[in-house]
């Protein structure tokens, strides 16, 4: 199988035939990543996903071969999500935490197939209750199969910071899990 980085390099040089393969490899995974970061809001995740791919195309010249393409691509997605919530409108209307915590069970914004069962809904609530910086690390490591170093590269933070965010995030999740059991 051709490495992601080679495909990205070919795209940089103008070979558009690799677009199908790059999208095929990462479309579902990126959607899952954005869906979890946005607390299960499918429409928003879809919008951010489209924007991420468009940004990837427009910014492909900035990709530095042979650095990991996956980390670079997820960094674009993370930035899209951050920019969305950092916009003035969003600051004054809602945040991902508020959105997920306040959603009623029958809310159409949450994909019914995904969070129909109570266990999944609890996970969504628990993730939404975390600070953004802990949620990003946990989703990257636990759902997107990033190594700690790759997560550090993608988020442009030191490895030690990834470890501390992950450790603190896990501790918070565990305490929420215990509270749910009680």
């Amino acid at each position: 199988m051709i490495a992601d980085e080679v495909l990205a390099r070919r795209l940089q040089t103008g070979d558009r035939t690799v677009i199908d393969e790059i999208v095929r490899r990462y479309y579902d995974a990126l959607f899952g990543y954005l869906l979890r970061l946005t607390g299960g809001r499918r429409a928003l995740a879809d919008d951010l996903l489209q924007e991420t791919w468009i940004r990837m195309m427009r910014g492909i010249a900035q990709y530095q071969y042979p650095r990991p393409f996956k980390s670079w691509l997820y960094a674009i997605a993370t930035n899209q999500m951050r920019n969305h919530y950092a916009s003035a409108e969003m600051r004054h209307t809602d945040t991902v935490d508020d959105a997920i915590l306040e959603l009623p069970f029958d809310d159409h914004a949450i994909d019914s197939d995904l969070i129909a069962d109570e266990d999944a809904r609890q996970v969504a609530r628990a993730l939404a209750a975390l600070p953004d910086f802990q949620r990003e690390v946990i989703v990257l490591v636990y759902y997107s199969d990033f190594s700690l170093q790759d997560a550090a590269d993608s988020l442009a933070i030191p490895l030690g910071t990834v470890k501390s965010r992950l450790s603190n995030g896990i501790a918070r999740l565990r305490s929420m899990m215990k509270a749910t059991e009680l």
Partner: peptide
């Protein structure tokens, strides 16, 4: 040293939110 960062119980808890169909 990083073992405590890959908690199996947490992994099991998080896996309840499965991947989404696209």
């Amino acid at each position: 040293d990083d073992r405590h960062l890959h908690d199996d119980q947490v992994r099991a808890f998080l896996s309840a939110w499965r991947d989404a169909p696209t």
